[in-house]
Design a protein around this nucleic acid. Sequence first.
DNA 1: CGAACAATGTACGAAATGGTACGTTCAGTC
DNA 2: GACTGAACGTACCATTTCGTACATTGTTCG
Lengths: 225, 225
Amino acid sequence: MTATSATASPRDTRRRRKNDPESVRADILAVATREFSEKGLSGARIDEIAEKTRASKRMIYYYFSDKETLYLHTLEAAYQKVRLQEAELDLDHLAPLEALCRLVRFTFCHHAKNPDFIRLVMIENIHHGRFLAQSELIQSLNAGVIDVLGDVYSRGVTAGCFREGLDPRELHWLISALSFFNVSNQHTFSRIFDWQQAAPENQQKLEDHVTDMVLRYVRVDREAP
Amino acid sequence: MTATSATASPRDTRRRRKNDPESVRADILAVATREFSEKGLSGARIDEIAEKTRASKRMIYYYFSDKETLYLHTLEAAYQKVRLQEAELDLDHLAPLEALCRLVRFTFCHHAKNPDFIRLVMIENIHHGRFLAQSELIQSLNAGVIDVLGDVYSRGVTAGCFREGLDPRELHWLISALSFFNVSNQHTFSRIFDWQQAAPENQQKLEDHVTDMVLRYVRVDREAP
DNA sequence: CGAACAATGTACGAAATGGTACGTTCAGTC
DNA sequence: GACTGAACGTACCATTTCGTACATTGTTCG
C-alpha cells in the first residue's frame, strides 16, 4: 500500500496503479517548480532537480520528455493552482464596493503568498511568453477571471457607486500591476530605497494603499463639475 | 589613426589613447546589454556576445574579468543611462499638479521605450537583487529620485491640491509599479487576455489610465465627509 | 631606436550539462 | 508461475560553455 489513497478500483481497469507513478510525477513537478522559479529556465539544472527528488534523472525524462516540456508543465501546474484558489472567492453575495475591495485585497495577498508563481510568470515574460503561447490549458483557465470582475463592476455601475466607462480588462490590469509589482520588484526596490518592503507593517500599508487606489479610481466622482 | 577623434591631448598624460580601447569596451557593453536583457544572466552566452562584437572573447575577459562582472557593469550602465534621462526633467517651474502629471507620463513612456532596462531589472530581481547589492554606484544614483517627487508632492500639499499624509516613497512605488508592469508583463497579459497591449492605441489608453489613477489618488477629496 | 606595457588574436582545456543506452525490478494477466 | 509492459537505476556520451595560456601587434616614452 504505498499508493497515496485510491487503490485500483474496479472501474479503473485501464489505468492501474503500480509502484507510485503519480506521486513520483508530483514530486518531480514540485521540485521543478522550486528550481525553475528560483533560477529560471536556463539557470535551473536537470541534475540538481534530479538530486532533490526522490526519483532519478531518468524519471524526469521518463515523465517529461525534456527540459522545456518540464518547464511548461511546471508553468501550467502553477496557473492551475492559482485559478483553483481564486475560484474559492465568491463575490456574488457581496455589495459591489465590498466585493471589489475584497477582490483587490485577495489578489494582493495571494500574490504575496505565492512568490514562486510570480517568479515563474516573470521568467515566462523574459521568454516573451513563448511557452504560455503553446499551452491551450492556461489560455482557457484564465478566461473567467475578467468575467468575475466585470460582473462586480457592472453591478456597481448599476448601483450607482462605480463610475461608467471603465473596461474590466483594464481594471484587472491595474489590480494585477500593483499586486504583481509588490512581489516581482521587492528586492531591487528594497535595496535601492533602503526600505524593508517585505516587513509586515509595510506590506499592510501597501495593501491598504493599493486597495484605496483602486477604489478611488472606480468610485463615482462626488464633486460638482 | 584608428582612434575615434580625440588624439592624445597634452593634459592627458596619464590616460593615453591606444588602439581604441574605449570604443571596444563600449561595444562589448552594448552587446552584453542586449544579450543579458534578452536571455538573462544564465541564458546569455559569452561566446555569443563575443561573436556579435567587433572584439573577441579574449577582450571580454580582458576588460571585464568574468561573466558576472560583465553582467554587473551592464546593470550599472543601464541604471546610469536611465538616471541621466530622468535628470533632464525639470519640474520646479511647473504647478504641482502639472508636475506630477508630467512625471507620471514621463515614467510610463520612459519605461515603455526602454524594455532592455526593464528586463534587466526583472532579471536582477530573479537573482534577488544580489548584484545590485554589490554596486554602491547604483545605490547612490537613485537617492535623488524620491526627493524630486517629494518636492512636487509637498508643494502640492502646501498649495492645497494634494491631500496630506502620503509618503513620497510609496507614491513613487505606485507610479513605478504601473509603469513597470506595463512592460514587464506585456507578453503574458497580452496572450492570456487576447489583448494587443503593445498596440499604440492601447498604450495611450493605459498611459491615460495610469496618470488618471495616480492623480485621483493624490488629489484632495472634494466631497463632504 | 628599443624597452615596456597595453591591446588583441588563436587555440585549447576542464568542467558542467542535457540527454540516452541498457539493464533491472515491479505488478497485473492468463 | 511464466509473460508483458510499465516503472525505475546506473553508467555513459556528446556538446556546450566558461575561462585561460601563449603568442603577437600596437603605442608611448626615454
